[in-house]
Design a binder for these strands. Structure first.
Lengths: 170, 170
DNA sequence: AGCTTATGTCAGTCTTGTTGACATTCCAAG
DNA sequence: CTTGGAATGTCAACAAGACTGACATAAGCT
């Protein structure tokens, strides 16, 4: 970097020159980082004959206790048959409880049991530890940029969901 | 932001306050962004009865023409049997060529055919378009942060691979 | 009463990961 | 120079988890 030119000015130019090469680096970074992102929970899940699908369900049930099946479907972006297979095993293993809705009795409201919360913590702790290390290494400015780019990469409707979850504006 | 205090100093404080909530936001952002990241190529691949595994193979063969199966294995982080199934279909569909090594005849060197390059472009173009939009929206400082955090999130050995590919220091 | 919505289930398919078994090729130690 | 082990790649069989399609049940709504 040339002395006397701020980073801002320097990178400002590259806006005009977003080369395929730079974009490809971003693409590969995304791929490799996602490997790392899922590696730790995957190891834990493998012991329990569960998979990522179970993790995702547990995560979002913990995040939004009492959520309905339909709601979860929209968040996860899978079919109900696919989700149902996962939920069935989690319920029969005693990690998740399903309660018939009081207002609308068609709905099932989902909660983690004590046992479910225990697993959720174990999985989150592993994933958060890596995220924490990465955030510390990169520094807060980088973290802000990281989140900005990720949000810009989401589908518009998914971004809305993400922001709702983030800000707790249910 | 307070005048006279650099961003570094300001956010430096928050290093001490990386709450579980902030980390969880990062985790969810990663999940939702990856959905978007793969969505466009997935649509193209679905038409062709290919999947993400094919895309990944095509991407890295294009990236490092003449690479060996073993090499590709290390990059993709899957078993050779898994990769082999994908390669077999790509070869028999005429997208990839496999040549026995001249020095070491155990090795197979992989190249894209003209047809393979065509599909590669189609997939890359879609994925790059989203990445480009996200980068433009977020701005160059954010992009730098994005890459920093992603690199910090990778497993150490994977990071080495990533940097090698990035810098072309084969 | 009849239409729609929310949920669950059964059956079948596809992709993509796994392990196990095996063939070929290379290399180095005896 | 031979032989045994390591490296590389292929084939087969299996499992997880995604998908579609069809259908059942219950509840809400017009």
């Amino acid at each position: 970097m040339v002395e006397g030119r701020s980073a801002q000015a320097y990178v400002g130019e590259s806006l005009l020159f977003l080369t395929d090469e730079q974009l490809r680096q971003g693409i590969e970074a995304m791929f490799f980082a996602y490997q790392g992102f899922t590696a730790d929970p995957d190891r834990i899940l493998a012991e329990l004959t569960y998979g990522r699908a179970h993790h995702r369900a547990i995560h979002f049930i913990n995040r939004a206790p009492g959520t309905t099946v339909n709601n979860l479907l929209a968040i996860l972006g899978v079919t109900k048959q696919s989700l149902n297979r996962v939920l069935r095993t989690l319920i029969s293993d005693g990690l998740v409880e399903s309660h018939v809705g009081t207002n609308d009795k068609r709905e099932r409201h989902l909660h983690l049991t004590e046992q479910g919360r225990t697993l959720e913590s174990r999985l989150s702790d592993a994933q958060r530890a890596r995220m924490r290390t990465a955030f510390r290494e990169a520094g807060p400015v980088a973290v802000a940029g990281f989140k900005q780019v990720l949000e810009a990469m989401m589908d518009a409707n998914v971004r809305r969901t993400h922001i709702q979850l983030r800000d707790g504006t249910t």
